[in-house]
């Protein structure tokens, strides 16, 4: 673990975040009478994590290395 490049670690944190948000989706679906708004927000948060950290959306407006 100690020798892993930091992007590997960021990838793990993002994966953990995605699992946590999925757990929140299931909790919201079971606990709320009308879960659609909460599910929409959680879905956007998950998509945002993937877009930013896994798909590197920020590369679009960064100078090429």
């Amino acid at each position: 673990m100690g020798g892993m490049p930091s992007p590997f670690r960021i990838g793990m944190w993002v994966f953990g975040g995605l699992l946590g948000l999925t757990a929140m989706e299931i909790a919201a679906a079971n606990a709320l009478p009308r879960p659609l708004p909460a599910l929409a927000v959680l879905g956007v948060a998950k998509a945002g994590l993937i877009l930013w950290f896994y798909m590197h959306l920020h590369q679009l407006w960064e100078e090429e290395e």
Partner: peptide, 22 residues
């Protein structure tokens, strides 16, 4: 890999829309 993540994002929205909303 970007294409693969895109397919994942689609499911991020399809899963709650099909299995969780009520």
């Amino acid at each position: 890999v970007k294409y693969w993540h895109f397919v994942d994002i689609v499911w991020v929205f399809f899963y709650p829309a099909l299995y969780l909303v009520r």
